[in-house]
């Protein structure tokens, strides 16, 4: 009986794994397939990866992706951290209201956020392009930062900030010297999370980008609509790997951090 239960458990986990990872695995395998065929394996190759790095348009989109992810997550980290500090000082009710408002872009379906941003840009005659995508990414990244920073701020004893001032530090230097080091792990997690979300985004980018501007995900989408392009499998594989590595990094940070907190 116990054995059967164990088997069932294993079977279930395996099934979950297959459902979750089979598509990605297929993608990865195909990205190394020598022929363009999606049906048959004709040998291992790196040529699609090589082709990828010779394609100007793809390199441009890769560049866009990285710049947008980096700049948007940096700006979002700055705004989100400042917002967290302000929210931490608020009374309970206003804070909860603020929290609700900032969470909307995160909880909303991407398509709703994407379309609303698109409409906003059209309404305000804001030419869609690189800047509009950047603004959109900053918008949806801010809540992730707040979500990581605010709990750290709440943990930080208010007296620590006051103790620094008591010992002669100005409010700004007190913040820099004792509060910032305390909440820095949260800020870093927030930044990494925002960066990942930005890398990962397709829908919102799709609705807010102009004609000439592409990130990797929108590039893959347009290319695949034109026909079979194994380079795109390679590109998707790379993106998957990048996001996976980032997420593992974030989780490891969280885990080691929780350890130091609960030591």
């Amino acid at each position: 009986m116990v054995r059967f239960g164990k088997f069932l458990k294993g079977f279930y986990v395996a099934l979950m794994g297959i459902f979750l990872y089979a598509p990605i695995l297929t993608l990865i395998v195909l990205s190394f397939n020598a022929s363009k065929s999606r049906a048959k394996w004709s040998g291992f190759t790196f040529k699609w990866y090589a082709a990828l790095f010779e394609n100007e348009a793809i390199l441009q989109s890769l560049w866009n992706t990285i710049i947008i992810a980096l700049v948007s997550s940096l700006v979002a980290t700055l705004i989100g951290t400042m917002a967290s500090i302000a929210m931490n000082r608020m009374k309970k009710l206003p804070r909860q209201v603020m929290m609700g408002i900032t969470n909307i872009p995160m909880l909303n379906a991407d398509i709703v956020t994407g379309i609303s941003l698109m409409l906003l840009f059209i309404m305000t005659d804001f030419a869609p392009g690189f800047t509009s995508v950047l603004l959109a990414h900053i918008t949806f990244n801010i809540p992730y930062v707040i979500l990581s920073v605010l709990p750290k701020l709440k943990q930080t004893d208010r007296n620590v900030f006051e103790a620094a001032q008591d010992l002669g530090a100005t409010p700004i230097s007190a913040f820099m010297k004792v509060v910032l080091p305390d909440i820095f792990p949260g800020i870093l997690s927030g930044f990494l999370l925002a960066f990942t979300m930005s890398l990962d985004d397709f829908v919102i980018t799709h609705f807010t980008k102009g004609a000439g501007v592409d990130t990797i995900s929108t590039k893959v989408y347009t290319e695949l609509r034109k026909g079979i392009k194994p380079e795109m499998y390679a590109l998707s594989t790379l993106m998957f790997a990048a996001v996976l590595i980032l997420l593992v990094l974030i989780n490891r940070r969280r885990a080691t951090h929780e350890q130091t907190v609960n030591h």
């Binding site: 004893d157 007296n159 620590v160 006051e162 103790a163 620094a164 001032q165 008591d166 010992l167 002669g168 530090a169 100005t170 409010p171 007190a174 010297k177 004792v178």
Partner: peptide, 16 residues
């Protein structure tokens, strides 16, 4: 506070 010639020992220590 930073310009007052006095110091405080806080209830919960508030060490850095």
């Amino acid at each position: 506070p930073n310009q007052r010639d006095l110091n405080t020992v806080f209830q919960k220590y508030a060490l850095f």
